[in-house]
Nucleic acid binder design. Structure first.
Lengths: 195, 195, 195, 195
DNA sequence: GATGAATGAGAGTTCATTCAT
DNA sequence: CATGAATGAACTCTCATTCAT
């Protein structure tokens, strides 16, 4: 399996670093190859083309990202707690890898529409995790009945995404994780049963 | 004043159409010129360079966008009503001009980081409008005290933006404006005084 | 006669200034028009095209240049004195008009080969003046018999031209006219009867 | 070392031919590449940009040019003989490579002022060779004391340059090398001790 | 005569991808 | 497997010239 080989991972890591440092449009294959310590041509033994690298970057990183969140959530019972954990983990992981934060929030969005569609595909499992929490929350009587799940999920994801993007644009100057409770309060209030 | 001349507006409109139709990266100056019915060189009598066209597109369109919203809001007294109006107008205007929706939600985000910073500058007045509503709402006792205004604004804007983007990606198949009340409920609940 | 009209001369003077200030390749018609205080289109009422302006600049300025020299020489009898006068006048005139010096020694030489051929045509009267001095000098027994006149003239003109060009490149920092006697001595020795 | 690779030399030779045939301004990269039998992009593996090609052409050719002259001169003892050799070699080498003659005397002078300054730098070693001959000649009592060396050198170089340029303009119709003795006589007389 | 807005052809350079070694 | 030299398509912007007013 190609994805197990050391050079595959080397190239992925090199791509993240190069893109974070130079920006999407200044990240030529030759730079990635140099950073990875391989020849330009070698890249094409592991990836179909440049787009394939970018998709793979997102795939790999997003996979770990979701896995971490899913694992952390599995320990919680209440949808409320799950949501807080998701928010915290979302913020924590992007705080921990600031290259990845730049790449996902700013640089990868400069790709063409076709690539963005593929990235959206990769995001789906994460969105499903959110959907599940909403559904559970409704079943547990925490959230009100009749919620439009996709809409609620868009509101949650949009909120998180915008907050992280602003934090990246502001050069990650403040503590993102500290904001998790306030964000959580906003969302749960937003979704909760009216009194 | 250059911006009053008919060709200026012609080129702006042509740019929106071409970008919406072909995507950001496939929108060559020559295509825009052709669509506008002018020579390539004429573009440069009205715009400094390609980036200047894109910024101007956003400036012009965003200017009208905000103006409309600000006007509609000014008729309302309650922050609650203002917020609903803002959401409705946000959705309504992008529904009315589906080319613009594609351009603002998808294509313009592919621009380089420098251009994106400029676009963020242009967005600021809109964000201020949101800030003002949050502050008013707090003063009117509708929203709870001690709200982190920038954070609340990011949550509102992020929510709206993500919802519109999803609607555009899904080819604008459903009625966006109809979702305004649900979104409004989510947000006001999120911000409101806890009981 | 077009050449008598005030705007004709205005444009010529503007061209010299603009070329001296900006260099040959950065001297667009629009700049020359602006400097001359006329519209771009007006240029074409007085000149066939851009090349025509440049030729005319050289023609006008060179005409005056030669006229001055020819007049000064006519007062001398000995070929020797004539040569010294020519050298002094050559240096003196370019010293007096440093814009012209830049234009003739550096900028106009960047023109294409076709234009340079035409400039060579304009130079011919000046070269004839030099030829005449050589012939007279030989007849007066000052220069040796059997001189190859074109060759001698090339040596004289080449010498003067190189000296002026060096002086221009060195930003006209030293007194060019002061060098006339030394140059004159070099040339007359070079051409004189051997003993 | 890039300069040793065959393609480097191929491109240099192609540039000389293309410039000689088409003139400076009509020598597009694509023409040079075609003449060299390489792709346009290959040029940029060996040269930074178009200006770099032109500088390199001059550097390479001028390097050989000076080397040849320096070598020939080294065998002579008398400054007089050295000067004659220099003149003969100067004429002989440009006669031998008529493309090079066109390029150096006519085409390369159309370059912008910045490039011309660089070309002047490359010329310096040649001018130093001339300076050395003048100084030696003075020490040997052949030339008169108190010669202004830079001025004398300008006269020598200006003379040679003008003669070659005229010969090129006249389509190299006559034998340039045959004129060396007359030029030599002119110069040595010009510089020699007065009797 | 004078204007100046409009025209549109033309070229240097980058970089993803290939393929002979 | 790995290399890296070679490829060549693609695009923005300038500016001399025109012509309707």
């Amino acid at each position: 399996m190609k994805k197990q080989k050391p050079k595959y991972k080397q190239i992925i890591e090199a791509a993240v670093e190069v893109i974070a440092k130079n920006g999407y449009h200044a990240s030529q294959i030759s730079k990635i190859a140099k950073q990875a310590g391989v020849a330009d041509g070698t890249i094409y033994l592991y990836f179909k083309n440049k787009e394939d690298i970018l998709i793979s970057v997102f795939e790999e990183k997003m996979g770990q990202f979701i896995e971490q969140i899913a694992y952390s959530i599995s320990e919680k019972v209440q949808a409320n707690d799950k949501l807080l954990t998701l928010i915290e983990m979302h913020f924590r992981q992007l705080t921990a890898d600031h290259h990845l934060a730049i790449v996902t929030q700013l640089e990868l969005r400069q790709s063409n529409t076709a690539l963005r569609m593929k990235i959206n595909q990769i995001l789906k499992p994460y969105l499903s995790v959110i959907d599940d929490i909403i559904i559970e929350g409704t079943e547990q009587g925490l959230f009100r009945d009749g919620l439009n799940v996709p809409l609620a999920r868009q509101m949650i994801f949009g909120t998180l995404d915008e907050i992280v993007t602003n934090w990246v644009i502001n050069e990650q100057k403040y503590d993102l994780v500290k904001q998790a409770p306030a964000v959580h309060a906003f969302i749960t209030n937003g979704l909760s049963v009216k009194n």
